[in-house]
């Protein structure tokens, strides 16, 4: 087959909703886009462990401690599936981590915000995982097989995460006045960053068009963001909390809620590394990696010795 026919058969598969598998032909750009997206996703899972791990030792009850710990552990597990999925595209986990540690690869900006009160554990589970689910459910049908299959597992667990977050918020909102205030404060702080998780406006999103064509993405950033707002506004009312944006209003004509324009300056600044916790989060990951260097060396040296012994 010629290059042209390879590409034609690739696009035909995509159009017929046949999944692309690691051994199949794929255009370089498709491979690069996937590596970027999957590794970014994996990095988000492991950097995303940190803001919540911040509260494990301070969780207010033993049950909450256990549930939060299990939840953060799941995020680590998601990181593992996703790194493995990315490795099928010809990059190693160490290479991806190197890109993370040197700032070449990005992770979701949401994790550059601080977790200040216990209610943040509720808000993260409910809003951040909720937004993640909205982004991720369509990825279970994404065109690259290993990624789609990893996402099926991830999504199952994420829905449990969102429930535990909502449950924390519900408990706080029905609690004492100070607990309700804590819940409101967390909602107010996490609302806009959660909406920004869907990425820049479609009009300025650099990757959306091609990703839609290749069926890596199935909905645009703005579509998903709107869907999230519509679902969440009702949940806020259910919690009995005040809406975090005074411009949220039902628009009969559109059949959606209207809301304020987001502060995209802030968004791009956090992306560029100026968020409140960018430096800290990265430094924590780098330190864990560097502190662990002698451990990993010991583990490989030991494995090597075993191999030699077995061979002898």
């Amino acid at each position: 087959m010629t290059q042209v026919s390879f590409e034609a058969s690739f696009q035909k598969k995509i159009d017929e909703e046949i999944m692309i598998e690691p051994q199949d032909y794929m255009p370089d750009e498709y491979r690069k886009t996937l590596i970027r997206q999957i590794s970014q996703h994996a990095h988000s899972e492991i950097v995303g462990m940190l803001p919540e791990a911040n509260w494990i030792t301070r969780a207010p009850s033993l049950r909450r401690k256990a549930v939060l710990l299990a939840k953060v552990q799941d995020e680590g597990g998601h990181g593992l599936y996703l790194y493995s999925a990315a490795e099928t595209l010809g990059i190693t986990r160490d290479q991806m981590l190197h890109q993370l540690h040197t700032g070449v690869a990005k992770y979701s900006s949401i994790f550059n915000y601080p977790t200040i009160t216990w209610a943040d554990m509720g808000a993260i589970g409910w809003l951040v995982d909720g937004a993640a689910i909205m982004n991720q459910v369509p990825l279970c049908r994404t065109s690259y097989g290993p990624y789609a299959r990893a996402m099926v597992r991830v999504c199952k667990e994420e829905s449990f995460h969102q429930r535990q977050g909502f449950e924390i918020m519900l408990n706080l909102s029905k609690g004492t006045p100070v607990q309700k205030q804590m819940a409101q404060d967390a909602l107010n702080r996490w609302w806009a960053p959660a909406l920004m998780m869907f990425g820049p406006l479609d009009a300025v999103s650099p990757n959306t068009a091609k990703s839609m064509e290749w069926r890596i993405k199935r909905f645009t950033n703005d579509e998903l963001r709107q869907r999230f707002i519509d679902v969440t506004v009702d949940q806020i009312r259910l919690l009995g909390l005040a809406l975090p944006d005074e411009n949220i209003k039902w628009n009969e004509e559109r059949g959606h809620y209207d809301s304020s324009e987001l502060n995209w300056d802030e968004f791009w600044n956090v992306v560029k590394g100026n968020g409140p916790c960018n430096k800290e989060r990265l430094a924590t990951r780098v330190k864990a990696w560097e502190d662990g260097a002698w451990v990993r060396e010991a583990a490989s040296a030991y494995a090597e010795k075993r191999k030699t012994k077995k061979a002898a």
């Binding site: 492991i46 462990m49 940190l50 791990a53 494990i56 030792t57 401690k65 710990l69 953060v72 552990q73 680590g76 597990g77 990181g79 593992l80 790194y83 924590t284 330190k287 864990a288 990696w289 502190d291 662990g292 260097a293 451990v295 990993r296 583990a299």
Partner: peptide
């Protein structure tokens, strides 16, 4: 629990 997210290798963290 305080080590969660800070292990030397992801598998060992878990």
């Amino acid at each position: 629990a305080a080590l969660c997210g800070k292990g030397p290798i992801l598998e060992q963290d878990i």
